[in-house]
């Protein structure tokens, strides 16, 4: 994975596979640390599964007996001197937190968050997503409830015209944030 945003896209799919109806995604960047947290209200994991979940030979899928998403993220984070922590309660949900040290030469760029959010919504348009991206003391926030309030209940976020508008909107906001022109946090 060449971007932290791609890890986020990959790991958030686990929440969707766990039938989460709400995902809260926060991404925070400072000179010292890049931290993202994915909180879902999906099915959660038992303590036994949680203990094995960063092992590549642990997976719930049936195509083959490996799952590489979590192990790849753990490796990418630890390579920078960072960490991956996962907390989960069966029937309540799961929280994944990854920390990267941006000063480390192996730290991947944050990358295209607009593309990641767009594809999460395109793939699962009924999902409620709360997204907050903070860079230093500026932040940008988007919730699917705000989108739906404008769009009305009958039009899917996955409609090509709608999702491409959302992507352009996110790209614009992410650029502003990157230039420190976003809202003061």
């Amino acid at each position: 994975m060449k971007e932290i945003a791609l890890h986020i896209l990959d790991i958030a799919q686990n929440s969707i596979a766990a039938r989460a109806s709400l995902i809260e995604l926060t991404l925070s960047e400072t000179r010292e640390a890049i931290v993202f947290t994915i909180v879902d209200n999906g099915s959660g994991m038992s303590a036994q599964l949680l203990a094995r979940v960063t092992d590549p030979f642990t997976t719930t899928r049936t195509a083959r007996k490996m799952g590489l998403g979590i192990p790849l993220l753990r490796m990418a984070a630890e390579q920078t001197g960072g960490s991956l922590t996962i907390a989960s309660t069966e029937g309540v949900g799961t929280t994944v937190t990854a920390l990267f040290h941006p000063g480390h030469i192996d730290c991947p760029p944050v990358g295209d968050m607009a593309g990641t959010i767009t594809l999460l919504l395109q793939g699962t348009p009924q999902l409620e997503l709360h997204y907050i991206h903070t860079i230093d003391n500026h932040s940008f926030q988007l919730t699917t409830e705000d989108l739906r309030a404008q769009l009305g209940p009958e039009i899917s976020l996955a409609e090509p015209e709608v999702i491409l508008w959302i992507r352009d909107y996110l790209q614009e906001q992410e650029t502003l944030l990157r230039e420190h022109k976003g809202m003061k946090a």
Partner: peptide, 14 residues
């Protein structure tokens, strides 16, 4: 700059 209110125009068109 885009604002969320533009979604209303997309909604009406759709």
């Amino acid at each position: 700059m885009k604002t969320l209110a533009e979604l209303q125009a997309i909604r009406d068109r759709m």
